[in-house]
Amino acid sequence: MTDHQDVRPGSTTAAPVVVELANVTKAFGAVQAVRGVTLRVEPGQVYGLLGPNGAGKTTLMRILLGLVRSDAGTVRVLGEPPGDPRTLRRIGALIESPAFVPHLSGRVNLQVLARARGLPDAEVDRVLRVVDLEGAADRRVTGYSLGMRQRLGVAGALLGEPSLLILDEPTNGLDPEGTAAMRSLIRDMAAHATVLLSSHLLGEIQQVCDRVVVLDKGEVVAEDSVSELLSRAGERTVVLEAQPADLTEKVLKANDAWSGATRDDSSWRLELDGAGVPALVRALVEAGVEVHEVRRERRSLEEVFFALTGDHHPVRSGT
């Protein structure tokens, strides 16, 4: 399902686009929540939104649902402007923490949503089974745990088997078992629907998503397939292990291309493209250095994320 083709708006492609944003901007008063965001989600993709607090992820999701109007730019969801009533029936959404009428049961809350979509109560029973919440369906939502509310929210998003699922932090509050089940559910859902999800768990995005957009301060700082993003971000970092350290240091300092290397005991990290590695090894060997290992460092998505956003703190759910 991973997509490596150029899918920027304006490019020619035969596949119908599920979500298309071009230069979308949104400000709340003096706060610029989204700045010129352009992205495109193809059918069947599991598309991840990553970004620190206030990056604009939830605002983008609200824009797609027509809950928030963009100030500028073009938005198309399933080929229609956001908020189109017929289109909304084909979208399932869970935005931020799931909200329900607290003193009503989970089942009644879902029935209210189902009736608004013109769906029978049997559909409510189906989605309750999918999220494994049948046993608690007739209890008041006010007595639900955070994880149960989250599953109820996902159940609401699944009503009517939508073509597009928009899930904002779907694993929030779930225990490890629930998180794994949700991950599996998202993958299952991707067989019938396109999934757009944000998560503060970078590992989850890495495991679940085909493609990812990294947002920071409302701007897109990277947009690619997860594998490409990891590969691109990690390809220049080389780890060198060599002895003796002082001689190695001397060789590295002698060349401007290597002088930025950082040392950690008997290993060094330096930025180097593919062609530069043989030259480095040759210079070290000619100087009498014992080269024990030269390897490319593969960064995790978390490291890539921090590198892209310049953030040094764990990512949390955002605006």
Partner: peptide, 18 residues
Amino acid sequence: GPEYRWGTWPARLSQGPG
């Protein structure tokens, strides 16, 4: 009014009816 307190307007307004 309570739809604001419960935070249920987004769900209410994203089901299809305008």
